[in-house]
Design a protein around this nucleic acid. Structure first.
Length: 581
RNA sequence: GCGCCCUUAGCUCAGUUGGAUAGAGCGUCGGCCUUCUAAGCCGCAGGUCGCAGGUUCGAAUCCUGCAGGGCGCGCCA
C-alpha cells in the first residue's frame, strides 16, 4: 500500500470533520487534493496542497486555512510534527516508528511489496513487437520489445490483467516477396544456379536454411509449377520459419506472447469485409479523390476515385484509402479489422507499442478504433524513439540494405539479457537512447545496471558474512528497530517505503523508466551507508558484540535487497547474489 | 508544406503530470578509502529550464508563436 494514499484519506476525513463542525463550508470538492513528498526533505515527509486547493471555495487565505487543518492533523497516528509553509503547504513529519513499520511490511510481503489493485482487474490488450516476419529481429526492435514487456509486468503489478499479443503481418506484398525469396533459395538448395539475389528480394543468408528445409520436405515438387501454384504454400512455409526464428529471438529477451494473431487469418475469416461493412452502415465510408501527399515526390501519381474512410471525423489529418489499385484491401483495412477483433474479444482497452517510424499511422488507427467501436474502445499508442548503438562513443552505422544491421541475438550474446533489458528502459521511451556496448559492460557507477546489481549482491554478501558472527540469524526476526536512528539509515528506509508510489506512478503514466531511477536512488543510498561504515565503525551493519543491533540492521539490508529484487522482477532482470562469475 | 516527438549544468539525463531555494551521474577541482569481498565515498564549483509572449496565487511543466534537432508524411507493411 502506497502510504500517501492512507494519509490522504486521513486528511480528507479531517476536512470533512471540520465541515461537519461548521468550521469549514460543507460540500467542498476534494478531488484535487494530493499528498506527495515535499520537494525538500527538510520540510517533512508528506506534503499536501489541501489548503491551497480549498482556499478559494472556503473563502479563506491558504495559510490561515492551513493552520486550521494542520491542527486537526496533529493527532494522526505516527505524525510527530505538522507545519504550514510557503504558499500554504501543510507538511507532516512522521515518527521513525512509521518507517520501521513499513520495513516490517516489506519483509513480510517480500517482492509483493508495491503491488496494488488500482487496475481493478481491468483487462488490457498490449500489442507489441509485431515486427514483419521477413527476417530475424534486429537490435532496433529490442527497445520496443522490452519497453512493452516491462510495461506489461508493471501493469500487472498494479492490478490490471494484461494480454500480451503479437500481430503477425503475414499478408500483403512483403510476405509474397518473402515467399519468392524462399523459392530462390529452394532452387539453390536443389542445385540450381541462382546468381545474385535480385533487388527487392530478401537477400539474407537465413533464408538458405529455409530453402533447404523446404527441399528436404517436398523434394522438387514445386520446381516445375507456375508461381500461382507455389506462392501460397511457400508463403505459409516461410512465414512459419520466420516466426519460429522471431519467437526464439524473443525468448532470448525473456519475452513470451500469449496470443499471436495472423493478418492472413483475419482476411480468411472475412473480418475485413465485416469491419468495412460496419463502417459503411455508419456512413463513414465514401468514394472520393485524395490530394497527392505533399513534401514528397511520388512518381506516377494519378488522382483516382477510391474507397475512403472518414478518419478526419475522428481526429486524423486526411481521409484514408482502404483498397489498393487492384481492388485488394490495403494494410490499413486489415488493421481496422484487427483492432475491432481485439475489441470484440473483450479488450476495449488497448495499448500498442511501436517504433517511432510509425508516427504517421497513429492518428489513423486511433481514429479507426474510435469509429468502429463507437467510442467504447480506447487505443493508446506508445512510441519508442530510435536507439543509437555505439561502441566506445562512436555510433555504429546500420543499414538493412547493406546487411550491416545488428541482430538482437548478437547483442544479447555480447551484453546479456539482463543488461540489455535494463538499458532499454533507462530513458523515457519518447527520447532517444544511446546504447554503448562498451559502457554497458563497464563496472562503474555510471553504469546503472552494474551499480544496482552490485548493491543487491552487496546486501547478500553482508548477509552471508553475518552468518559467521551470528549463525542462523535469519531464523530470528528483528525485535527492536530503534537502533536504526542514523539520519542516513532513516533516509534509506524512507526510500524503500517510497517504492510502491514509484511503481504506481510508473504504471499510470506508462513510463517504465521511472523504476530505474527509483532503484538507482536506493542503490546509491545503500552504497553510501556501506561506505560510511568504513570510517565510522559504529555504522557498520555487522557489530560483533551487539547481536540485537546487527539483527536490526540486517533487517534493513533485507529490505534493500527485497526492493531491488522486486524492481528487477518487473524489469525482467535476474538479481544476482554475487558479482563474481 | 503538414503531423508527432525532443531541447534542463561542460557532457549524459531525472524532475512525482501546475507547487516551495530546479536535481543526479560523469567530467573539473579539493579531500578520503588498501575494506563488514572489491570495482568506491564525501565535499566545492557549475542554471536566463532553446527564445518570446500568454494563462494564475504559483509554470521547466498548460496555451500561442518562433528557432534548432529527430521521426514520419504511397494504395509499402
Amino acid at each position: 500500500m502506497n502510504f500517501f494514499h492512507s494519509f490522504r484519506n486521513e486528511i480528507l476525513n479531517s476536512i470533512e470533520k471540520l465541515a461537519k463542525e461548521g468550521r469549514l463550508p460543507e460540500g467542498l470538492t476534494l478531488d484535487k487534493i494530493t499528498t506527495e513528498p515535499p520537494r525538500d526533505a527538510t520540510h517533512g515527509d508528506i506534503s499536501t496542497n489541501a489548503a491551497m486547493i480549498l482556499s478559494k471555495p472556503a473563502h479563506m487565505n491558504p495559510r490561515e486555512l492551513g493552520e486550521l487543518i494542520a491542527k486537526e492533523l496533529e493527532s494522526l497516528p505516527y505524525v510527530t510534527e505538522v507545519s504550514v509553509a510557503g504558499p500554504g503547504f501543510i507538511n507532516l513529519r512522521l515518527t521513525p516508528n512509521f518507517w520501521y513499520k513499513e520495513l516490517e511490511t516489506i519483509l513480510k510481503e517480500k517482492e509483493e511489496y508495491g503491488s496494488s489493485s488500482i487496475g481493478l482487474g481491468e483487462k488490457i490488450n498490449l500489442e507489441y513487437v509485431s515486427t514483419n516476419p521477413t527476417g530475424p529481429m534486429h537490435a532496433g526492435h529490442g527497445r520496443v520489445a522490452v519497453v512493452a514487456d516491462v510495461l506489461a509486468n508493471l501493469l500487472e503489478k498494479v492490478g490490471y490483467r494484461v494480454l500480451r499479443e503479437f500481430y503477425v503481418n503475414d499478408a500483403g506484398g512483403q510476405a509474397e516477396k518473402l515467399a519468392q525469396s524462399t523459392y530462390l533459395r529452394y532452387k539453390e538448395a536443389l542445385g540450381h544456379e541462382i546468381g545474385i539475389i535480385p533487388e527487392g528480394y530478401y537477400p539474407g543468408d537465413y533464408l538458405k536454411e529455409v530453402g533447404e528445409a523446404l527441399a528436404t520436405r517436398d523434394g522438387d515438387k514445386w520446381l516445375s509449377l507456375p508461381e500461382s501454384e507455389w506462392l501460397e504454400p511457400l508463403r505459409e512455409f516461410s512465414i512459419n520459419a520466420m516466426m519460429t526464428m522471431i519467437r526464439k529471438d524473443l525468448a532470448l529477451l525473456g519475452i513470451n506472447h500469449e496470443v499471436f494473431t495472423s493478418e492472413t487469418e483475419l482476411h480468411r475469416m472475412g473480418a475485413v469485409e465485416a469491419a468495412i461493412q460496419t463502417l459503411k452502415e455508419r456512413g463513414l465510408i465514401y468514394e472520393g479523390i485524395l490530394e497527392p501527399p505533399k513534401g514528397k515526390v511520388i512518381e506516377n501519381w494519378k488522382p483516382r476515385k477510391q474507397m475512403l474512410f472518414r478518419s478526419t471525423e475522428f481526429g486524423d489529418d486526411a481521409d484514408r484509402p482502404l483498397q489498393k489499385v487492384d481492388g485488394s484491401w490495403a494494410y490499413f483495412a486489415g488493421d481496422i479489422a484487427y483492432h475491432y477483433d481485439k475489441f470484440r474479444r473483450g479488450y476495449p482497452n488497448m495499448i500498442n507499442v511501436w517504433g517511432a517510424d510509425h508516427v504517421g499511422t497513429v492518428k489513423r488507427v486511433t481514429s479507426a478504433v474510435k469509429a468502429i467501436t463507437e467510442g467504447k474502445g480506447h487505443l493508446d499508442v506508445i512510441l519508442c524513439q530510435i536507439v543509437n548503438f555505439m561502441e566506445g562513443g562512436k555510433p555504429i552505422k546500420m543499414s538493412k540494405r547493406a546487411g550491416t544491421f545488428i541482430e538482437i541475438k548478437e547483442v544479447i550474446d555480447k551484453v546479456g539479457r539482463d543488461a540489455f533489458r535494463f538499458m532499454m528502459i533507462t530513458r523515457k521511451s519518447d527520447a532517444h537512447l544511446d546504447f554503448d556496448f562498451k559502457k554497458v559492460l563497464e563496472q562503474t557507477r555510471d553504469n546503472p545496471v552494474f551499480y544496482i546489481q552490485y548493491a543487491h549482491a552487496r546486501c547478500h554478501s553482508v548477509m552471508r558474512m553475518a552468518e559467521d558472527v551470528f549463525p542462523k540469524w535469519s531464523e530470528t526476526s528483528a525485535e527492536v528497530y530503534a537502533g536504526l536512528d542514523d539520519p542516513d539509515e532513516l533516509h534509506l528506509l524512507k526510500l524503500l517505503a517510497a517504492w510502491p508510489r514509484h511503481v504506481e506512478i510508473a504504471a499510470t503514466a506508462r513510463e517504465p523508466h521511472r523504476l530505474c531511477y527509483a532503484l538507482y536512488e536506493i542503490a546509491a543510498q545503500f552504497h553510501m551507508l556501506w561506505n560510511k561504515g568504513k570510517e565510522n565503525t559504529l555504522l557498520r551493519f555487522i557489530i560483533a558484540d551487539n547481536k540485537e543491533l546487527t539483527r536490526t540492521r540486517l533487517a534493513m539490508i533485507q529490505g534493500v535487497a527485497t526492493i531491488i529484487a522486486s524492481g528487477f522482477q518487473i524489469i525482467g532482470v535476474t538479481p544476482v547474489k554475487e558479482m563474481r562469475e
